[in-house]
């Protein structure tokens, strides 16, 4: 299973890497340490070239990371800036790999491919995660499952009625229509469910009187390799185009990066426009706590069980029987497969 290299991956939430507190994470099987200096955020190979100690166990000294074992210091470019031993001369080869890193829309984006090609304008925008204008509730989970299984999970929300029967589901999803729209390498999963009764919990959280039928849409925008914005809206049932009818719109973000072939990082968030008032800050904070429960106790065990069942086999090799609701997830997989193939040519 190959990974796409020349693409921006999510490496962390902005708040996960605080000044003076390096964060270690494995991405695409490579150990990476991130830290924040006066020059911005940096990502280095998390391994001192001297005796291979993990740099993240060291401490930040000014704009450099100091190796915890013998004190060599490395700056954000990966260059060794200090050798405390002998005459202090720095061997030419004493440097660590540095990965291009950009902070945008509350996310630390990392480029795992050819640094020459790391164009920040290629990063998909998440305006709903721009902390200037939005209150954002953010959280993180690690999954012992391939990140594409995670992508499938979000691209096909028909699982809600089953996996989330007692939390997010309402048993009314069977009439929902799922369509797929491709725009360049972006794939949209558009799901519309007419005349739906939300679960009592969701009715309460959306301020709907119990038993209010709504037309609800759940639209996902996917960008490679696995970053998604889910826009959920509802409008009083019966309008020609519910997406254009006056109603409520909620924003959720689901971001996945491979840790290894069979484990993944999962960042999720929900956000509210600041101009809707400071109440929004409390709402997103509560909402993200609420969401973590089904994600952690319902989705995660399923994804990990799926992975165990699949073992190390490739998804296509197992010849999945696919349903119409799989169309968007399959398209996303195929777009990604084509990009990986093109990159390996």
């Amino acid at each position: 299973m190959a990974f796409l290299r020349n693409i921006w991956y999510v490496a962390a939430w902005d708040h996960e890497v605080a000044d003076g507190r390096p964060l270690a994470r494995t991405l695409l099987n490579e150990p990476v340490v991130m830290f924040r200096s006066s020059q911005g955020v940096h990502a280095l190979t998390d391994r001192c070239p001297h005796r291979f100690a993990p740099l993240h166990l060291g401490k930040q000294v000014g704009n450099a990371l100091q190796c915890p074992y013998h004190g060599l210091e490395f700056d954000g470019s990966g260059a060794c800036t200090r050798n405390p031993h002998g005459d202090g001369s720095i061997p030419k080869a004493a440097k660590v790999k540095s990965y291009p890193m950009v902070e945008q829309d509350s996310i630390l984006w990392i480029w795992m491919g050819d640094p020459e090609k790391a164009d920040p304008t290629l990063i998909p925008r998440f305006e709903s995660l721009d902390p200037e204008n939005w209150y954002i509730g953010k959280d993180y989970l690690r999954a012992r499952a391939n990140y594409q299984l995670e992508v499938d999970n979000i691209m096909d929300l028909s699982h809600i009625d089953y996996l989330h029967a007692s939390t997010l589901g309402n048993g009314n999803g069977k009439n929902a229509e799922t369509t797929v729209v491709q725009d360049g390498n972006t794939v949209h999963s558009l799901r519309l469910n007419r005349n739906e009764l939300l679960s009592p919990e969701l009715e309460r959280r959306n301020g709907l009187p119990p038993g209010t039928p709504v037309d609800r849409w759940l639209d996902v925008r996917w960008d490679p390799p696995g970053v998604m914005e889910l826009v959920v809206g509802n409008a009083p049932t019966g309008s020609e185009d519910p997406r254009k009818a006056p109603g409520q719109i909620r924003y959720f973000q689901h971001l996945f990066s491979p840790e290894t072939e069979h484990t993944a990082h999962y960042w999720f968030a929900t956000s509210r426009r600041k101009d809707l008032g400071p109440e929004g800050e409390r709402i997103v904070a509560e909402m993200i706590v609420f969401l973590r429960q089904p994600f952690e106790t319902e989705d995660l065990p399923m994804l990990e069980a799926q992975q165990r069942t699949m073992g190390t086999a490739d998804f296509w090799e197992l010849r999945p029987i696919l349903l119409p609701t799989d169309a968007p997830g399959i398209r996303a997989r195929r777009v990604l497969d084509a990009m990986i193939k093109a990159e390996q040519k």
Partner: peptide, 27 residues
Amino acid sequence: SCEQGVCGTCLTRIVDGIPDHRDSYLT
């Protein structure tokens, strides 16, 4: 397999003519 244009199992090469694509599989 799926018989509704999702899975790509029946993918067939065209030598001549213009298809009317109604599947969701092809990019």
